[in-house]
């Protein structure tokens, strides 16, 4: 009988306790690092993926920081990005938004940063710039954005600043949330809403901003 107790104690000591302790510590670490389950699942996605393509690496970067402070830049000096290329970076100081900026808003851009909808325009064009980002990664910080905040977009051809004028929640299918025909440079950032929801949502959180500085692209039309 004593032998059985010894075996039981050894199993308890060397197998069950270490396994349980590792799981408890692991779970505690996840809980501390990430307040909600969706974030834990996002991390899980990085390790367990049924996608063969590694979207974190397969993109081209044409962004080279510039100190250009002129008011205009000729179109011939601008390298217009193709879809899935990184051409800049987007930051909102103090709001935890800092993302690589891509042209196009498919899987590669949203896996690696924020993406400009290809049916909208790049900064400096004088029209609408519609930018998407995931709510539990690069655009989670949009929940902290307030009116008057400055959104900075740096590209290889110029550095831009936009002042936040409003934030709104719209249904994803609503066409009232954007105007792709606008003839005034305006920046629209959006992400899924509520911010910490698991899975798909019908609503989107929009941030609207107007251009305050950065070179206008001239000579676009012959």
């Amino acid at each position: 009988m004593k032998k059985r107790v010894k075996i039981h104690n050894n199993v308890k000591k060397f197998l069950i306790v270490p396994v349980v302790m590792s799981l408890v510590i692991g779970a505690a670490a996840i809980a501390v690092s990430f307040s909600v389950a969706s974030d834990a699942l996002s991390i899980g996605n990085m390790f367990f993926s049924d996608n063969q393509v590694d979207y974190s690496k397969s993109f081209e970067n044409i962004f080279v920081p510039t100190t250009n402070t002129s008011d205009t830049i000729d179109a011939s000096e601008v390298e217009f990005p193709n879809i899935d290329k990184q051409f800049g970076e987007l930051k909102i100081k103090g709001r935890d938004v800092d993302a690589k900026l891509f042209f196009g808003d498919g899987k590669i851009p949203l896996r690696n940063g924020a993406g400009v909808y290809a049916g909208s325009f790049i900064p400096g064009y004088g029209k609408t710039i519609l930018v998407a980002g995931h709510n539990n990664t690069y655009f989670n910080g949009l929940k902290n954005v307030k009116k008057g905040d400055i959104v900075k977009i740096n590209t290889s051809y110029g550095n831009y600043e936009y002042k936040v004028t409003d934030t709104k929640i719209h249904n994803a299918k609503s066409k009232k949330s954007y105007d792709l025909n606008a003839n005034k440079e305006n920046l629209i950032l959006y992400t899924c809403y509520p911010f910490d929801t698991i899975g798909l949502t019908e609503k989107r959180f929009f941030v609207y901003a107007d251009k305050i500085s950065g070179p206008k692209i001239v000579g676009l039309y012959d």
Partner: peptide, 18 residues
């Protein structure tokens, strides 16, 4: 759509692993 799905979509493998 113009407005994309920007919530994290979990793969089935992730759900199984978690």
């Amino acid at each position: 759509n113009v407005i994309k799905t920007t919530g994290q979509q979990q793969s089935p493998v992730t759900y199984i692993a978690v």
